[in-house]
Nucleic acid binder design. Structure first.
Lengths: 198, 198, 198, 198
DNA sequence: GATGAATGAGTATTCATTCAT
DNA sequence: GATGAATGAATACTCATTCAT
């Protein structure tokens, strides 16, 4: 699955880590070369020994998300879907601002490279999810008449909104509880109707 | 129901339009006083005759959403819900610029005033929708066992994601068709399963 | 004594009053055309109907000080000197910031016209004081061997410093009390020595 | 006795010098980052490598006064007082720029931090002088009945005025001669009048 | 007399980046 | 590998002033 494994030097890794921390703690607007360099304890100029520019730092950072996000392990079918949604919310809970970056494709409008990376991630994620949807359909857990893209929206859309509301409300409600509640209803709603006859 | 005066002078409207366009086309980082003023064809200083500051411009911009979004007319119940979703997508189709900004609350994360406005809008919109949900439940069109906030997410979440995907893909698919398809499935999924007969 | 009596129109007078008030209340840096115009209740542009520019407003304002400062009435000799010093401190007490302007010749370094006016005021004031010194000398109240300019400094210098300290300390001590104490010592110190033999 | 580090880099010293010159020659309103940077021959941005902001530049400038002013060496009593006044005037003669700023506390009225520094300097200087006054009193050179703060004003006030007049007149008179004359009179005036014999 | 709209020059400060050492 | 110094372009915003109406 890895397209271009760019093995980062330890210094590069350190920089990417610092960038992640900075975004997570202070928001993306505080991800400046200055802040980054002082976070690491070197001069601003020093960063340019390790990355050609800021864009590349963000690229490296964003690329790393991918590993984190889509590892659901050996699960399949609806269990895999559930696991994915859970994993996402847990990531949000663990690193709220980082998560905000993940969902804010608009933020990177001005650097097409990064937008591209994010778009690719989104696509790949979508692909994986659809696999699991298909498995769930085959398992008879989800009704078969909903097109995959619509299905994707019906499931991921509510999750995204839930996370967004949680973020906007500054964590005012119990994200896990609402997520579980939502998942339960989703599953029931999507269950084939004939099941009741079984 | 209008809280504050929002009668904009023609120049103010022009500025707000330009701001909207700028954000939609280039991202919020490019919404600068400079860009804004040159977009209109005046000096930067000139803008300050019409708005006290950048914040107020964005506020005016954001406030305008509200008018556009929430007028559903005389409908009630599920019909009203459908009308709202349709209205939203039609708005997106009519003013794609506005649309791109509409769901990107993250964009304004760093200015709490605007985040507040957006949050307020969202809350009010949510309130209205919940009314209609309740009506739909009372009408027996929607099952009664889903909490209102979850219901809101199950319906609005997919719509938002649909619009976002449409925006990110630069209008690559037929928004109306997908919206109608989605609506249809939603309605069916949410219909009570004659549970009362069980 | 009036060089060019510029009879101000009532609107001009109003503007000058507002300018004085502004300086007195907020300091000279807040004396802007904007603040001035809103203080009066007109547009910025309107001010230019009454004065050719900001400089002329300040000129008119500064010119008015002259009347206020040097009217000691019918007194002469040492009594007149005392009266002058008292008058100055009372002015300071009444309008602290305005007074600060009076002593801060440096503030107007960049507009030579105003510096000129202030310098002229200072000179004239010095002249008047020296007259009274001479009278005091003739009266035998002040010793005759001190040159007039030095005498001026020996008397006015401490007063200025007193006022400055009072201003810098934000009025932390009793200006009147210290002024009277100072005056008393001054008089005694400057009394001709033979007096003791009289 | 030094409170904070004041070892300036050569570039910092250059900036401070330029700032001093700018204020002295053109008034504080012209002490802008722009003017300052062009005076030195660098970009505005370059200044921020050497000072965090304008405030700190002015602070450094103001702080420098202290070193120059208060070193009188081993002297004590009236000799020390004389030495201090002489030193001050010599400083004025050597660095007229600095001199013009030296007594213009009003200039910094709007930035409380700097006003604070100046006030502190003034206080410390006053303390030192009062020590010497006391010594002079104990030596029987100065009469004992004048409160220390008044005494301070009676001696330093005239000096400040002398220097200010010299500055305003653009060095039109012989500062040294007038200073010596003043000092002589001061000493004589303040000599005890054998009051003890009365 | 007064306004609304605009201007041009200016304010302090920040940013990503470069380069000689 | 890293630093110190610098740059050019940008940021939001303010000021005194002008001009057509």
């Amino acid at each position: 699955m890895d397209k271009k494994k760019k093995t980062l030097t330890s210094r590069q890794a350190e920089i990417v880590d610092a960038a992640l921390k900075l975004i997570a703690e202070q928001g993306i607007q505080h991800l400046t070369i200055r802040n980054l360099s002082t976070a690491i304890g070197v001069t601003e100029a020093a960063l340019y020994r390790h990355f050609p520019g800021k864009t590349e730092i963000i690229q490296a950072m964003v690329s790393r998300f991918e590993e984190d996000v889509d590892e659901i392990g050996e699960l399949r079918g609806w269990r895999a879907v559930e696991a994915a949604l859970v994993r996402r919310t847990e990531l949000v809970l663990a690193k709220p601002d980082l998560a905000r970056v993940l969902f804010a494709e608009e933020l990177f409008k001005d650097s097409p490279e990064i937008a591209q990376i994010l778009y690719g991630m989104m696509q790949r994620h979508q692909q994986i999810m659809k696999c699991h949807f298909q498995e769930a359909v085959d398992d008879g857990v989800i009704r078969a008449d909903i097109p995959m893209d619509t299905l994707f929206r019906l499931i991921l859309g509510p999750l995204r909104l839930l996370i967004k509301q949680w973020g906007l409300s500054d964590g005012a409600f119990d994200l896990r509880a609402k997520r579980d509640e939502m998942l339960e209803f989703m599953k029931e709603l999507l269950t084939p109707k004939m099941q009741s006859l079984r």
